[in-house]
Design a protein around this nucleic acid. Structure first.
Length: 573
RNA sequence: UGGCCCUUCGUCCAAUGGCAGGACAGCGGACUUUGGAUCCGUUAAUGGAGGUUCGAAUCCUCCAGGGCCAACCA
């Protein structure tokens, strides 16, 4: 049968995974190849300075800056600062700082508030061409006149105001003659349009409020739709990437740049915003957490903000790797926390030194070890499978702290740690055998006695006998006291945005999102390290000395993420 | 009485009319001085019904489910 016309199957094996194309890159790639815009690829990241950036913004940043870099173009940082009542220069500074920290550099720094004059000029043009009018209805009347998604709107009684009258009102609006809400400028499009955004959208509103950059120079401020697309056009943006909920706005975006006469205007393309399990990614909700004191600030390590993740110990590399692995598409995507945590561990595993710290100390006394002896053991900073070198001295003595969880009087099956009569390895130290359990009046275990095998220094038995368990420890006489902040998921439910009707997301916060442990013990090698140093506390998790609160003599460590714990799974069965 | 968008393993992303593949998670094993890491193996999906076609995840129709739009927020 020769009439079957089999096309050559696509060659999948020599495709470079790093160059794999998502639908955005595919589009940009085509446009770059066709020279469609007649200018280099130009994207922009347009935050409103009314809050801190979060991991969802990081996805957008990686996309916008990443695409610009990949196609030898530029990415502007533009502050979309058109609402004087919510914005602040403090946020501008935080946003700049976070983007730099993430590892990106912007082409030009722009402010929508620098375009007020130019936008006003376009407003007058629209009025002159009959494409805009001043509406003097109340806010309520405008809302009612818009209709609903299923019923068409009705025209404002001011819709057919003569051009000269419109111009006069517009100029007087700008001059500050009217109170807030007295008039607005609206585009004249179609009050029965199936797209609600096209039902004579508002362009300019009166706000007698000081703007953090423009002061009181203006009392009329553009709305998002009026400012955004035109700002893109002013800057020569080619690809305006935004999230799915702006899909309907695109029609208005296109209308405005066309009416303003732009040749080869930017094109908006939407992608799915990031949703992450067990947290919230809405600026409104994050702001509430901050203002209501539910967290310590925008940089609280429980926050999904860039600043919070940074303080938590997450690296920019991990965030970028995460953005790469989740990809980008047009379907709403909720990412499991495990995906994020994998990116964090995967990065930290290869870069941070190992040290030993005991979270909940239990005294271990080696009864056959001389009371006055201290040995300095040489312990590698990295395990055999991490291609880094270096070691630190770790003091060993008769009295040690071990982890309370590493001893069980009546161990279940598969518990490999210390128990009466059981031998374990003290990491980098000796093999020890438990000989006695001491308890207080209340029956609580207060001290474990054991003997050590002097022939096993370093942890290997010359007779070749194997022990199942290795536990970490610190010398009691040399241990440094420290505070451990054990962070966990912000929310108690996977999707705090989908709570039953009327239930506040605050009620879904995880009460154990922070457990502060005082009296933890860490080995002395970390004493002089600067705040912000990262470690793996062996067998426990990745930690960072708190950049704000940790100091010599009062060490504070934030848990970035716990180590994977397969024992926990066994235990739960 | 609307418009638009989305639907592929548990989760995320590919497959662009031609063998449904990768990552994370899970499970099993090897290795291990971290119950970590690493390595090997493995479970697991095209929402449903029609249609077009030699051939459909892909194109068409209908249905179902989910999302966005009725702020002088962005």
């Amino acid at each position: 049968m020769t009439h079957f016309n089999h096309p050559t199957p696509p060659n999948t094996e020599n495709r470079d995974p790093a160059a794999r194309k998502d639908f955005l890159r595919e589009k940009v790639s085509e446009d770059a190849a066709s020279g469609r815009f007649g200018r280099p690829i130009h994207t922009r990241f347009p935050p409103e300075p009314n809050g801190f950036l979060h991991i969802g913004h990081a996805k957008s940043i990686c996309l916008n800056f990443g695409i610009a870099r990949q196609f030898a173009g530029k990415c502007n940082l533009r502050f979309d600062d058109t609402n004087p009542t919510t914005e602040d220069v403090r946020y501008v500074e935080a946003i700049r700082n976070d983007i730099r920290w993430l590892g990106f550099a912007w082409g030009e720094e722009r402010f929508a508030s620098d375009y007020f004059e130019r936008l006003y000029g376009i407003a007058e043009e629209l009025v002159r061409s009959g494409k805009a009018y001043v509406d003097s209805q109340s806010e309520e009347a405008i809302r009612e006149g818009r209709g609903t998604v299923t019923v068409p709107g009705t025209p404002s009684p001011f819709r057919d105001r003569p051009v000269e009258e419109n111009l006069d009102f517009l100029r007087r609006m700008r001059a500050g003659e009217f109170a807030d809400g007295a008039h607005v400028l609206r585009a004249r499009i179609d009050m029965a349009h199936p797209n609600m955004l096209m039902r004579d959208p508002l362009l300019l509103r009166i706000r007698h409020a000081a703007h953090y950059r423009r002061g009181t120079a203006w009392c009329i401020y553009p709305l998002y739709d009026f400012a955004h697309g035109l700002s893109d056009a002013f800057e020569g943006i080619t690809h305006s990437l935004c999230t799915l909920e702006f899909k309907d706005n695109r029609e208005l975006y296109d209308w405005l740049v066309r009416e303003a006469g732009f040749d080869r205007p930017p094109e908006q393309t939407e992608f799915a915003r990031l949703e992450l399990d067990y947290t919230v990614l809405s600026k409104r909700k994050l702001l509430r957490l901050v203002t209501e004191g539910l967290v310590t600030g925008w940089d609280d390590p429980r926050m999904p903000t860039i600043a919070g993740l940074r303080r938590r110990g997450v690296t920019p590399e991990a965030i970028r790797a995460f953005a790469d692995t989740i990809g980008v598409a047009r379907s709403e995507a909720r990412i499991e926390l495990a995906t994020f945590e994998h990116a964090v561990r995967d990065d930290l595993n290869m870069r941070v030194p190992r040290v030993m710290a005991v979270t909940r100390p239990l005294k271990l006394v080696l009864t056959n070890y001389p009371a006055d002896r201290v040995e300095m053991l040489d312990a590698p900073l990295y395990p055999h499978d991490v291609p880094k070198t270096g070691s630190r001295p770790v003091p060993f003595s008769r009295e040690l702290w071990i982890e309370r969880d590493d001893f069980m009087e009546e161990p279940p099956k598969k518990f490999f740690r210390l128990a009466p009569g059981r031998e374990v390895r003290l990491r980098y130290g000796y093999l020890v055998t438990c000989t006695e359990v001491r308890k207080n009046q209340a029956g609580e275990i207060i001290e474990i006695h054991a003997t050590y095998d002097p022939a096993t220094r370093g942890g290997d038995a010359p007779d070749g006998r194997r022990v199942q368990g290795t536990i970490h420890w610190v010398s009691a006489a040399h241990a440094l006291d420290c505070e451990l902040r054990l962070y966990d998921r912000l929310c108690a439910v996977p999707d705090p945005d989908a709570l039953p009707e009327g239930q506040d997301f605050v009620s879904a916060l995880n009460p154990s999102s922070l457990i502060t442990v005082r009296g933890a013990k860490v080995e002395p090698s970390v004493a002089a390290d600067p705040a912000g140093s990262r470690y793996q506390f062996e067998r426990t998790g990745y930690f960072i000395s708190d950049p704000a609160d940790s100091r010599a003599g009062a060490l504070v460590f934030n848990r970035t993420v716990a180590l994977r714990d397969s024992w926990a799974k066994v235990k739960d069965r």
